[in-house]
Write a protein that binds this DNA or RNA. Structure first.
Lengths: 229, 229
DNA sequence: ACCTGAACACCGTTCAAGT
DNA sequence: ACCTGAACACCGTTCAAGT
């Protein structure tokens, strides 16, 4: 008869999404993200490969979940701090996270090109809020995002380029939901595109932004050089 | 009898490395680098998968070869041009290349982490030469590389971080060969590490460089904000 | 010298089945 | 509700063989 003490009873805690994500992060930290496969992750959890699909929708969603985990490790913004200091501390905290998870920049970059995760959007939203609360204009904040690039996330790949792979126009309901959840992104994009409907930066001149950032860097370097001469 | 006009004669030009690389670049341009497999590339060339291995050593070397092809599309440096203009033109040329080959930034980043290709090293070397010829000090040039990051290559991921995955110390002969081929990289690294033997920037304080770049950007943004107020 | 076919050890994922 | 096993359509690559 099968009792709770039956020898065939599995002697591990039942799986859940958080446990799967944490195991995936640990496995990627140890062996790199290229060595992370659904099959190896299942093996590490002592489970059949297909058991994972009850808790994550597939490999892409697993990677998205791992992003949520590591973004959650970045320090929250501190209220009442001058904008430059606030941005600086947060970016350095993001950098510390990336040093703990060397695979994260690559995964965040790749997945963000397809569709940014909610945690990435929320992070960017709070960063925009810091700039705007500091008194920077919408235009300058917009340029700042491009100039900082993904330095905002502790590394420096341009995010949100190629106007996002998500071609379809969002319907009005999701637009409104987006505006509620990410008010600063919405306000900035609205101000820049002058078109309430679009949420992704359709009205953004990539070439101009690239040159803006480039010249900001070059002028800064020149100033340092002149000061040293 | 088998004559040149034999019906069984293959009616395509014989394969060579350049043809393989060009086909791979074209396939990645069309379908993205994730869809690029040895098998699909072979199919596109009308050949068995294993035929490719006579011309490239494997998939990693195929990717390296593709990098050489696209780096070769960047305009060469123009002599006798002021350093800021020279850097600016070259970076914008690199950016145009990346717009033609959207997969390239990802591939260059991933492969450079393992081992930079000769074309990438040569490109960086000429960029350093432009800075140094413009009179910038070795230290400022070093900071400039970190500040510009991979904006130097038209995108903005930090390259050469993690001190390169290539752990083993190069033997004296290859060090000397490196110094001949990439004199500016060598001079800069030597000046920074004060250690002739090491070629990769072992003496580079990543944290300091990150903050240097960050502050350069933030100070530049602040100056623009102040000027606008 | 150049190309092929079969085979091996991997993938992610669907499906029907177990408990 | 949660997990499994077999199977499918893919990978990159080795090996022995063809011409």
């Amino acid at each position: 008869m099968a009792t709770p003490a039956d020898a065939t009873r599995p002697h591990r805690a039942p799986l859940n999404t958080q446990a799967v994500l944490r195991a995936a992060v640990a496995l990627a930290d140890e062996s790199g993200v290229d060595a992370l496969s659904m099959r190896k992750l299942a093996q590490a959890l002592g489970v059949a490969p297909m058991a994972l699909y009850k808790h994550v929708d597939g490999k892409d969603e697993l990677l998205d979940g791992m992003i949520e985990v590591v973004i959650g490790e970045i320090d929250p913004p501190e209220p009442g701090v001058e904008w430059k200091t606030a941005i600086r501390r947060r970016v350095l905290s993001a950098r510390q996270m990336l040093l703990r998870h060397p695979w994260a920049s690559q995964v965040i970059e790749a997945r963000t090109k397809v569709r940014p995760t909610p945690a990435v959007l929320a992070y960017m939203d709070t960063m925009i809020e810091i700039f705007r609360s500091g008194g920077l204009s919408v235009d300058l904040t917009h340029h700042a995002l491009h100039t900082m690039g993904s330095r905002l996330l502790g590394f420096s790949q341009e995010l949100f380029n190629e106007s996002g792979g998500d071609d379809q126009e969002p319907d009005p309901e999701t637009s409104r939901a987006m505006a509620e959840q990410y008010p600063n992104i919405t306000a900035l994009v609205t101000a820049i595109t002058h078109d309430e409907g679009s949420v992704v930066g359709a009205g953004c001149d990539d070439q101009f932004e690239f040159e803006f950032a480039l010249d900001l860097l070059l002028n800064g370097l020149e100033r340092l050089h002149d000061a040293a001469s």
